[in-house]
Simulated scan of single mutants.
Amino acid sequence: MTNVLRYAMAGLFLCTGIFASQSEATVVVGGTRVVYPAEGKEVTVKLTNQGSMPALVQFWLDAGDEKSMPDTAKVPFSVSPPIFRMEPGKGQAVRVMYTKEPLPTDKESLFWVNVLEVPPKSADDGRNLLQFAFRTRIKLFFRPAGLPGEVNAAPEKLTWTLVNGEGGKGVALHVANPTPYYVNFAHVGLKIGERSVMEKGGGMVAPGGTTTFPITHLASRPSGDVKAQFDVITDFGAVNTIVQPLAP
């Protein structure tokens, strides 16, 4: 790892002053998630530099530790190229290759793609300047061949239960996932009669796992016709709204 990238990773920013700044990432990932079929030789992640200046980019995967660095992350994947320069308005395709270390064959495994963008050093050394290094992090799902059922049908298999919130206060939704697929949510909430009570932010439930989502907008259990309502994010980044009855 170069010294510039090592220092950028340490705090995810570079700082030489306080008066001028670059405040948003310009290197954009083509997609909101990556699906790696186990039988595939590799997958390609496409990046685009939408800014007006070149950027130095580092690309790596981790197994869920946000603090991991490229030389400490332990994952069964290699990437090419791991470090590269992107000119403004140009694209770059990064190859991700499974290195064949054993992974579960009866369910999906989750990894994370990291894209660290370091802007070029300002040519004006006389100015006070604040420069940031931006990291984009998206999910990569490793999908074994021959899993039962269809990934698009997995959300319909979920079981939702209305439970007490943390400490017995408030209301929460508990979801159980009997399928071998991860199910990702943009929003989770309740359909109470004709009214929707949705929480900001989303989450996910792992294969064979459970997750509990607090319903912060409700202080007590609602009465009447109450169902689970949730927005599912598909492999292609589309969002589908589903309403399901609650389990007894």
Rank of each mutant, 00 (worst) to 15 (best):
R95Y: 01
Y98D: 14
Y98A: 07
T99E: 13
K100L: 07
E101N: 11
P102Y: 09
P102I: 11
L103N: 01
P104V: 10
S109P: 02
L110Q: 03
F111V: 01
F111I: 03
F111D: 04
V115F: 13
E117H: 08
V118N: 11
V118A: 13
V118C: 10
V118L: 09
K121M: 12
S122H: 11
A123E: 13
D125K: 13
R127F: 00
N128P: 05
L129W: 07
L130T: 06
Q131D: 14
A133L: 07
A133I: 01
F134Q: 06
R135H: 00
T136P: 05
T136W: 11
K139G: 01
A145R: 07
P148F: 05
G149C: 12
V151I: 11
A153H: 06
P155M: 13
E156C: 00
E156S: 15
E156T: 09
W160G: 10
T161E: 15
N164G: 11
G165H: 05
K169W: 06
G170N: 04
G170W: 01
A172D: 03
A172Y: 02
V175G: 13
N177Y: 04
N177R: 08
P178H: 01
P180E: 13
V183F: 00
V183E: 05
V183S: 10
A186G: 04
A186E: 08
V188M: 09
G189R: 12
K191I: 00
I192P: 04
G193L: 14
G193H: 11
G193T: 03
S196Q: 13
S196F: 02
V197G: 13
M198A: 08
E199H: 02
K200H: 14
G201I: 02
G201L: 10
G202A: 12
M204T: 07
V205M: 08
G208S: 09
G209Y: 05
T210C: 07
T211L: 13
T212F: 00
T212L: 06
H217E: 15
L218V: 06
L218K: 01
R221L: 11
R221K: 15
D225V: 03
D225T: 08
K227E: 02
A228M: 09
Q229I: 00
F230Q: 07
F236L: 11
F236S: 14
V239G: 09
T241R: 14
T241Y: 03
